[in-house]
């Protein structure tokens, strides 16, 4: 190998190294907003109190400019025959299940985004279009999203929905914890309308103690489990119930944040770009040695 090209080699390698280090520094800043504030808000959903009136569904649509229809039509009980899921047309839905302990009344379960403490969707989003805000809400940014739907793959509660039938400007649709309303000091629309306050809005830590208190005071009414206190690493929306949550179609994502494994792999690979850079150097070295050997072979000949 000639002297000049060897110098080239070293010079360029150094340059690339510097470039990548620069990159890694800027990438550290480029993470999406993911705040786990001490004072984050939450909602405690008491499924033993919820009456399945579905007014929250109506209010949610009204608050999010989705076609909501007449509120009286929400008195229709037939929708409970099939399980429904939040979708691009309804960010929250209520499903009905048969009675649990201590009551003959059916159990109604409102479903919406759980606003996880360690949201998988935020961690997964390719462009950081989702963010966890100071007040606990996980919201979506229309100006960033590219529509790859990886958040849907990642969400352990299967929440984000996508407007598949729009050719232009399709959106990821999910409960935003009424981010705009709470910013103005209002309650989330569903919390505000709920006639029985099955939805209690407040600081998450306070909600947990309230929930524990309710369970302690009324052990016949509740099972001793606050769904969402630990699930998937904790969620802002939590549930009380009078039967196993699995029976109410709640998933069992485990207590570890869904993002744990993949984030640690991700960080392992990208820890300050050391692994890729060393791989680069290694390959460069092998290449250099092989080339060198070959040219000295030739010289010997």
């Amino acid at each position: 190998m000639s002297g000049s090209s060897r110098r080239d080699f070293l010079k360029t390698s150094a340059l690339i190294g510097a470039g990548i280090t620069g990159l890694s520094i800027s990438s550290a800043k480029a993470a999406p907003k993911n705040i786990l504030s001490e004072n984050r808000m939450g909602v405690l959903v008491d499924t033993t109190v919820c009456i399945g009136c579905r007014q929250c569904e109506w209010a949610c649509k009204e608050a999010h400019d989705l076609p909501a229809g007449n509120i009286a039509s929400y008195e229709n009980r037939e929708v409970f025959y099939n399980m429904r899921r939040p979708s691009e047309n309804a960010l929250t839905v209520v499903n009905q299940y048969s009675a649990g302990k201590g009551s003959d009344l059916p159990v109604d379960v409102k479903v919406q985004c759980m606003h996880c403490d360690h949201p998988a969707c935020v961690s997964a989003c390719i462009v950081g279009a989702l963010s966890k805000e100071e007040n606990g809400s996980v919201i979506w940014d229309t100006d960033k999203c590219i529509g790859c739907r990886y958040c849907m793959v990642a969400c352990p509660f299967q929440i984000p929905a996508f407007q598949y039938n729009k050719a232009l400007d399709p959106k990821i649709m999910k409960c935003d914890f009424c981010f705009e309303r709470t910013k103005e000091g209002k309650l989330p629309a569903c919390v505000e309308i709920c006639p029985v306050e099955a939805l209690t809005y407040g600081p998450r830590t306070e909600l947990i103690s309230i929930a524990k208190d309710r369970i302690k005071r009324d052990p016949d009414r509740y099972i001793d489990h606050i769904y969402g206190e630990k699930e998937a690493g904790g969620t802002a929306w939590m549930y009380l119930g009078n039967q196993e949550f699995a029976k109410l179609d709640f998933p069992e994502p485990g207590d570890k944040p869904a993002v744990g494994v993949s984030e640690s792999i991700q960080h392992g690979i990208f820890a300050y770009f050391v692994p890729p850079v060393s791989l680069y150097a290694l390959l460069g070295g092998i290449m250099w040695i092989n080339k060198h050997r070959k040219s000295s072979d030739e010289e010997e000949k």
């Binding site: 709920c194 006639p195 029985v196 306050e197 209690t200 809005y201 407040g202 306070e206 909600l207 309230i210 208190d213």
Partner: peptide, 8 residues
Amino acid sequence: IGIPDLKA
């Protein structure tokens, strides 16, 4: 918020 409001 420990006890329900009046409406509730």
